[in-house]
C-alpha cells in the first residue's frame, strides 16, 4: 500500500460508521423537527418552527426542563463534594487503604440499570433496609419511589452512588500529583485542614473539577436514563421525568415524531454548549499525565 492512499483507506471504516450513524441521523433529526406527520397518512408536512414553539408552550415540557436542571445540579454538586473529601481520605498512606479504594471504586463497574435495581430494593417500603432503619430510629415510614418529593431524592441517591467512584478516581489521581508537603493534612487538626482544602487543594484541583462537572452533567443528562427507567419510570406525576426520559416517551410511547425530533435538537444544542465549554475551559489546562 502506498503512503499516498494509505491514510484515506485507514479512515474509511471510521467515516463510514460516523457518516451513516451520526451525521445522517443528525441531519434527519433537524429535518424531522420542522415537519409534522399527517394524522392518517405517512406524509410529512413542513411546519417550520411550530414544533419548537409548541414544545416550549407545553407546560409538561417546561416542567421537564426544571426537573432536569434540579436533578443535574443536585446530583453533580453532591457527587463532586463527597468525592473530593473521599479522595483526600483515600490519599493517605494508612494500612488497608488499597482495600478501601477497591470497595469505594466498585460502583464504577456496576451499570446504571443495576444501580437502579439495587436502590429500588434498598428503598422498597416492605423488603428494603432503609425504611427499616428509619422506622427504628426516627419512627418514619416513607414510600420512597412512589411519592413526591421522595422519588426525586431516590434517583439522586442512586445517581450519586453510581457516579462517585469515577470522580474519586480522578481526584485521587490529581491529589497524587500534588507534592506531599503541600498536602500534610490531618482530620483532627480541623482548622488547618479546612484552610488547606480551601487555599491549596481546591485551587490546585480546579481543572479536574471543571472536567468532572462537565462529565457528570453529561452522565446525569443521558446515562442516568436507566436509573430513572428502573426506579420510577419518570413518576410520580412526572416529578422524575428528565428531558431524555421525556424524549423517550414522546418518541416511542406516544409516537409524536415531530415533537420528539424537536426535543432531540434541543438536547443536541445543550450538548454542543456543554462540549464547547469543556474544550474552551478544560482541555487546554488539564494534563493528566
Amino acid at each position: 500500500m502506498s503512503r499516498k492512499i494509505a491514510p484515506y483507506l485507514l479512515l474509511i471504516p471510521t467515516f463510514l460508521v460516523i457518516g451513516l450513524f451520526i451525521y445522517w441521523p443528525a441531519v434527519y433529526s433537524f429535518n424531522l423537527s420542522f415537519h409534522r406527520r399527517t394524522p392518517f397518512g405517512n406524509r410529512m408536512i413542513f411546519v417550520g418552527w411550530k414544533n419548537f414553539i409548541r414544545l416550549f408552550e407545553w407546560s409538561e415540557y417546561t416542567n421537564t426542563v426544571v426537573v432536569t436542571v434540579s436533578y443535574v445540579a443536585l446530583s453533580v454538586s453532591i457527587t463532586v463534594i463527597l468525592s473530593l473529601l473521599l479522595a483526600m481520605l483515600l490519599n493517605q498512606k494508612i494500612p488497608g487503604v488499597r482495600l478501601y479504594r477497591t470497595f469505594i471504586f466498585a460502583p464504577y463497574a456496576i451499570s446504571p440499570a443495576i444501580a437502579g435495581v439495587l436502590w429500588s430494593f434498598l428503598l422498597n417500603p416492605v423488603v428494603g433496609h432503609v425504611n427499616y432503619f428509619l422506622t427504628k430510629t426516627f419512627g418514619l415510614q416513607v414510600e420512597w419511589l412512589t411519592t413526591k418529593p421522595y422519588a426525586f431524592y431516590s434517583i439522586v441517591f442512586a445517581t450519586v452512588w453510581k457516579m462517585m467512584p469515577f470522580d474519586v478516581i480522578f481526584y485521587l489521581a490529581g491529589l497524587q500529583s500534588i507534592p506531599d508537603e503541600l498536602l500534610e493534612s490531618s482530620i483532627i487538626d480541623g482548622a488547618s485542614l479546612w484552610k488547606r482544602i480551601r487555599h491549596i487543594i481546591v485551587p490546585l484541583l480546579s481543572p479536574i473539577t471543571f472536567y468532572l462537572v462537565i462529565m457528570n452533567i453529561i452522565t446525569t443528562m443521558f446515562a442516568a436514563f436507566a436509573i430513572i427507567d428502573v426506579m420510577t419510570k419518570g413518576g410520580p406525576a412526572n416529578s422524575t421525568t428528565t428531558m431524555i426520559y421525556r424524549l423517550y416517551l414522546d418518541a416511542f410511547a406516544f409516537q409524536k415524531t415531530g415533537i420528539a425530533a424537536a426535543e432531540s435538537v434541543v438536547l443536541f444544542l445543550i450538548m454542543s454548549v456543554v462540549t464547547i465549554f469543556y474544550f474552551l475551559l478544560v482541555e487546554k489546562r488539564v494534563h493528566y499525565q
Binding site: L20, F21, I22, W24, P25, A26, Y28, S29, L32, I218, F222, A223, F225, I244, L247, Y248, A251, F252, T257, A260, A261, S264, L267, F268, M271
Partner: peptide, 14 residues
C-alpha cells in the same frame, strides 16, 4: 452527538 442518547429517534428510523 452521542448517537445512543440524543439521536435515538432518527437512528431508530434508519
Amino acid at each position: 452527538l452521542p448517537a445512543e442518547t440524543v439521536m435515538i429517534l432518527p437512528l431508530f428510523l434508519i
